[in-house]
Design a protein around this nucleic acid. Structure first.
Length: 866
RNA sequence: GCCCGCGUGGUGAAAUGGUAGACACAUGAGACUUAAAAUCUCCCGAUCGCAAGGUCGUGCCGGUUCAAGUCCGGCCGCGGGCACCA
């Protein structure tokens, strides 16, 4: 062993692992299984530091669990459908398929040198017909169960690209790519009935105790359960067939503050009026302009139109309210109609103010006649109390109590019933896109919408398509649409919409258990491998991907593709932080460089610089070329435009994979962001070099070494095993690494004999191996370890060695540390007490004061109270 | 607006209610060297002191406790999620 040369040893050991197929997942009923999965990547073509961190975390867990004796499944694949491939086709003319598979090959070539313990034999891409064909089969099964259905819905329509956009793809009311003003358009689309599972998806969150609380809260908010009253108004002056108006409210306790009723522009009554009244038609059209995105809604002014219809207050037939069409009422929540209570609702207040409607209050602050806006649940006095006596008296403390009482009261009066509503809407999956999984249905003039026969699957995407004009290439393909009706055999047309790519990632974890099965899953394999024991990925998937997957696992169970055990597919979830980097910039104004202090001057513009173009020296950061000072933005997300991206391939080239892996796991807790620094990377490399040097110098200790001897070395080793094991178990990789630093320092100072030293270094190698598997193998082999370090069992610490013979106890006087004593670990408390009070420093501090109390916590601390 | 989470040295961070700052980065000092690099050693919260040592210190104010970074209440600041959801 000479110098630490990662390039050589890393390639060597990767080859050794491959040849022995040590990462092949084996279905072995005799052993417990462990399924660790990192969220699979979109094949952009380049890996980034986020991938390195994500996959290293999974790799640490996988290697650790394998060493613990588990049969480990650690697969990798590609989330390969999606818009970037089509955008690339439009921009460069490369076919999405060639683009995607080319990127996969490139990314795989970049992942390989990291030495990750993936079972590549299970690899697949979601754009493989073998994969999406099974997805089509499940779609057909879901149709049969009523879990997939068609309905008309209002969507964001990009008139330039001629496709539906997701809300996230609408920015300031414009398409994110085309920049065209997005329209609200009603289209018939495919939906999954995720709303059937709202209650269960919510309540089952309680069982996900190994998920981050944050994610569970976000999902709970997204599902959005509310309890309220649904009742119908009797209408007056309404068109035929509309003699009742059904509304939903979560605040039935404020019914007496009613001032108006309002319906959505998409409400059946609005649609009816639209056909007969040009003013209504114009107003409704106005409302439909502008997208359904959050931004569009936020800036939208409250608009309303009086329909002339009136409704009677349910508590008082002599009291009637106007009915408005209002742009802020959503058709797909509740009943699409509300009662307006301006005194107790901000929106209703704005609306009532704008249209000059009354603002009657239910609650009046004691001692005044004023009713503060939205100040509910205060003791009330009002002549209208007669209506609500019995359900909102002063004894009600909380809003929930008042609502529950109000519902009960209304029900007893025969006014409506208590209803639980969810915010979660059905999942619209139709996309007018080429690069996605074709929806396997056929439109027949005679039979209507008919599912494709399963023996005809996969319905493959045609290769001969063009991207020179906007819209869906499948729509204008000359022949692909043409087919025979699966029901009657007559000429028919294929559906040209493809599925939302979130569907591809909603079941891939299940497919990994039997990636080449002729059905979506294999019952025996799924029974053995499911669930995923540890899932690792970014917080950005906290809602959509994870919620869709939870729904889809249930749908797969309902259609016989997953066992009941797997309806919550991820036993434990870990959301890792980002890898960040400083941003370096100078300032320019009108092309001229200006001083950093002038940042407030008008038209000052930041010019960003690459990390390699700046140098850190005393006094700050400076540009290498001109020496001028550079501004620094600390710890920012890596982004090409800010020029603060670090390419993992450059790091691996300069320092090796082990350095990259060790660095991204060290310092910061895994759930937090970690800042990449050049000095940190170098320091990591130096540390690994020290381990290397330590290893090669055994038996060659300097004579004057004053470090620990054999017995202490054994204890130190046991403690390192204990610390590292517990840290990895609790996902505290930064602490595992801190313990390994400490152990390495101890070893480098040890003055032990050769055999125990070699044993200790082999243990060090094994403890390091989940993080830095290559150098671990090399050290292991050099120190005479049997077989591969990777397949060696995880060491177990002898509990007896974890306890020292003597222990140093701090002595506090009135809570302040004043002295310490060293005592045998098993000394009785009474004796410790005696020793402590006799201690020279204690005597000095007490200065004769009487001791009122003394607390001895064995092995911990002594506190003397005077 | 509603719902979460977080505030500890120059920096990243440790700390079952029990010695705050482990481990590391940066800075500084020193050794080796003709020199530099590499390597090694030491210091490294603030403050008073020659020193021994003292005092203060985990965003702020209060509380519980023999003992609080940790638990409770109230503020302040930062970050994240959701949002015409009736």
């Amino acid at each position: 062993m000479s110098r630490y040369e990662p390039a050589q040893i890393e390639a060597k050991w990767q080859q050794a692992w491959d040849e022995r197929q040590v990462f092949l997942a084996r279905h072995d009923p005799a052993r417990p299984k462990y399924y660790v999965l990192e969220m699979f990547p979109y094949p952009s073509g380049r890996i980034h530091m986020g991938h390195v961190r994500n996959y290293t975390m999974g790799d640490v867990v996988a290697r650790y669990k394998a060493a613990q004796g588990f049969s480990v499944l650690h697969p990798m694949g590609w989330d390969a459908f999606g818009m970037p491939a089509e955008n690339a086709a439009m921009a460069t003319g490369i076919h999405p398929k060639d683009y995607t598979y080319g990127n996969i090959a490139e990314m795989k070539a970049q992942l390989r040198p990291l030495g990750l313990s993936f079972d590549w034999s299970r690899e697949f891409a979601t754009c493989d017909p073998e994969y999406y064909g099974q997805q089509q089969a499940m779609f057909i099964d879901m149709m049969a169960k009523g879990l997939a259905y068609r309905k008309a819905a209002v969507v964001n329509w990009d008139p330039v690209d001629m496709t539906v956009l997701a809300n996230e793809q609408v920015i300031d009311g414009r398409g994110w790519r085309s920049n065209a003003l997005v329209e609200r358009r009603e289209l018939t689309q495919w939906f999954f009935k995720i709303s059937d599972y709202s209650g269960e998806l919510l309540s089952a969150l309680d069982g996900l105790t190994n998920w981050p609380e944050k994610v569970r809260v976000m999902q709970a908010n997204w599902i959005g359960k509310s309890r309220g009253l649904q009742f119908s108004f009797t209408t007056h002056n309404a068109p035929e067939g509309f003699d009742r108006l059904e509304v939903y409210t979560t605040r039935p306790d404020t019914l007496l503050g009613a001032s108006f009723a309002a319906i959505s522009p998409d409400h059946p009554l609005a649609k009816h009026l639209e056909r007969h009244d040009p003013a209504v038609a114009a107003f409704v059209a106005e409302c439909r302009k502008g997208g359904t995105s959050a931004e569009a809604l936020e800036t939208a002014e409250k608009l309303g139109l009086d329909t002339g219809v009136r409704v009677l207050h349910p508590f008082d037939n002599s009291w009637d309210l106007p009915v408005y069409i209002a742009n802020f009422v959503l058709m797909d929540y509740g009943t699409g109609a509300i009662f307006g209570c301006p005194a107790h609702d901000q929106r209703d207040f704005e609306f009532a103010t704008k249209y000059g409607l009354g603002i009657p209050s239910v609650f009046v602050t004691e001692g005044t006649d004023e009713a503060p806006l939205a100040e509910a649940f205060v003791p009330m006095k009002s002549e209208r109390v007669r209506y609500i006596r019995g359900f909102a008296g002063p004894d009600l403390q909380t809003g929930e109590e008042a609502v529950a009482a109000a519902i009960a009261h209304c029900e007893s009066m025969g006014v409506g019933r208590g209803v639980t509503n969810y915010r979660l809407r059905d999942w619209g999956i139709s996309r007018q896109r080429y690069w996605g999984c074709p929806i396997p249905v056929v439109h027949c003039d005679a039979c209507g919408v008919v599912p494709e026969k399963k023996e005809n699957l996969p319905i493959e995407l045609p290769y001969d398509v063009t991207f020179d004009i906007p819209g869906n290439p499948l729509d204008r393909h000359p022949t692909w649409r043409n087919c025979a009706c699966p029901a009657c055999g007559a000429p028919a047309r294929r559906e040209t919409d493809t599925m939302d790519t979130f569907m591809d990632s909603s079941w891939y974890y299940a497919r990994f258990t039997a990636p080449h099965a002729k059905t979506p899953t294999d019952a025996a394999e799924a029974a053995y491998w499911m669930n995923v024991d540890q899932y690792i990925g970014g917080i950005e998937h906290a809602i959509l991907h994870l919620l869709y997957s939870r729904f889809f696992a249930r749908a797969m169970h309902a259609t016989g593709h997953l066992p009941a055990q797997a309806i919550e597919p991820f036993n434990a979830l870990f959301t890792q932080g980002m890898v960040t980097h400083e941003i370096y910039f100078t300032l320019e104004r009108q092309g001229q460089t200006i001083a950093l202090e002038d940042h407030s001057s008008e038209l000052a513009r930041k010019v960003y610089h690459l990390p390699e173009d700046v140098e850190h020296r005393e006094g700050g950061v400076f540009l290498r070329t001109t020496g001028q000072p550079v501004g620094v933005i600390p710890s920012a997300k890596m982004s090409k435009s800010k020029k603060n991206v670090v390419d993992p391939m450059n790091i691996i080239g300069a320092f090796g994979a082990d350095t990259a892996r060790w660095f991204v796991m060290s310092d910061s807790p895994p759930e937090r962001d970690v800042e990449w620094t050049a000095s940190g990377a170098e320091a990591t490399f130096k540390h690994l070099s020290r381990v290397w040097a330590l290893c090669s110098r055994i038996g060659d200790m300097p004579a004057d070494h004053i470090g620990i001897g054999d017995a202490d070395l054994t204890r130190a080793t046991a403690k390192a095993v204990d610390e590292v094991t517990r840290a990895i178990e609790s996902f505290a990789f930064n602490k595992a690494i801190a313990a390994l630093y400490g152990f390495t320092n101890t070893l480098s100072r040890a003055n032990a004999s050769t055999a125990p030293m070699k044993q200790a270094i082999r243990t060090l190698a094994k403890l390091m191996s989940p993080m830095t598997p290559h150098i671990a193998e090399e050290v292991w082999a050099y120190q005479g370890g049997a077989g591969l370090c990777t397949t060696a069992p995880w060491p177990v610490a002898d509990p007896a060695l974890l306890v020292d013979d003597t222990v140093t106890l701090p002595i506090q006087i009135n809570g302040k540390r004043r002295a310490e004593i060293s005592v045998p670990v098993d000394m009785p408390a009474a004796e410790i007490e005696k020793l402590a009070l006799a201690d020279h420093d204690v005597v000095k501090f007490l200065a004769g004061q009487p001791v009122r109390k003394i607390i001895v916590v064995p092995g911990r601390i002594i506190n003397v109270v005077v």
